[in-house]
Design a protein around this nucleic acid. Structure first.
Lengths: 142, 142
DNA sequence: AAACTTTACTTGATATGTCAATTATTTCAA
DNA sequence: TTGAAATAATTGACATATCAAGTAAAGTTT
């Protein structure tokens, strides 16, 4: 138990790191020039079309600064456009372009495959317990 | 279940991110000018005095390039010294300095507190299950 | 309305993550 | 024993993480 205390955080870290590498590799293999984080940001904007950058950063657990920079890159890549919100000129309205929508649609299937591969051999009950443990850690660190 | 599939990776990501921020904040509050990653690297060298950088990167789940840079910073901070290994001139021997040893000793207690705070309200059995789920994910992504 | 506070976003600095290319050294094989 | 392959570490380029400081706009107080 004392030992596991040490190790659980290593395994959390290790698992998410390997999963990200795994997922990124799959995207690359399919010829997609987009990062996991960029994909996540577009996905969230599509699902929440009126979201602000500030709300977005809470949703994807990222710093405002990171979100600003990811959005910059997505705009450069023509997956996104932004426009000042006339209701509140501090904010921006974020528009996913046609090509942004398309890449999300194409990548979707790979993401589902990645997740299911990564969770192979894990049953619903233990997954549920693992998830609850993670949620407790999240609460404790807030 | 379908939904949880989607969410487990978010919670893994979220939990490790919050834990790192939490741990880093505690270090800062106690006046330590060292990052979690730097601490981990010194700790591993102390526990494996003959370790190479290559072995080190496997141990801490980091890229060789990251380890090189972390070691550079630790040398600048006088916590570490390196010396070419005469047995194999491609390798280095890594020496933790007195002041490196000292900071590890001082930080140790805070790290233990952080872990136990982060795991509050989680019992041994569910922790064991969570750990086994993470190990399966790690295997699946290798 | 003017001053103050808060909010949304950006930018700079530094650390780390990831991949690819490079250098130096060693090992292996013909 | 020499030439090819493998290994250890570094470096460059770019993406992201984190904190702090800064700018602009909106909201609040008096």
């Amino acid at each position: 138990m004392e030992k596991l205390n040490n190790i659980i955080f290593y395994n959390i870290d290790h698992s998410i790191r390997l999963y990200r590498m795994y997922a990124q590799k799959k995207l690359r293999e399919h010829g997609f020039k987009i990062t996991i984080d960029q994909w996540l940001v577009i996905k969230c904007i599509l699902e929440n079309p009126t979201i602000t950058q500030h709300e977005l950063s809470a949703l994807v657990f990222k710093d405002n600064a990171s979100v600003t920079r990811i959005i910059d890159l997505l705009i450069k890549a023509k997956y996104l456009e932004k426009e000042i919100n006339p209701e509140d000129r501090r904010k921006f309205m974020l528009h996913v372009t046609k090509s942004g929508e398309e890449i999300i649609k194409k990548v979707q299937e790979i993401v589902l495959q990645n997740r299911s591969n990564a969770l192979k051999g894990i049953d619903a009950k233990e997954l549920e317990i693992a998830d609850s443990v993670l949620r407790k850690i999240i609460q404790n660190c807030k």
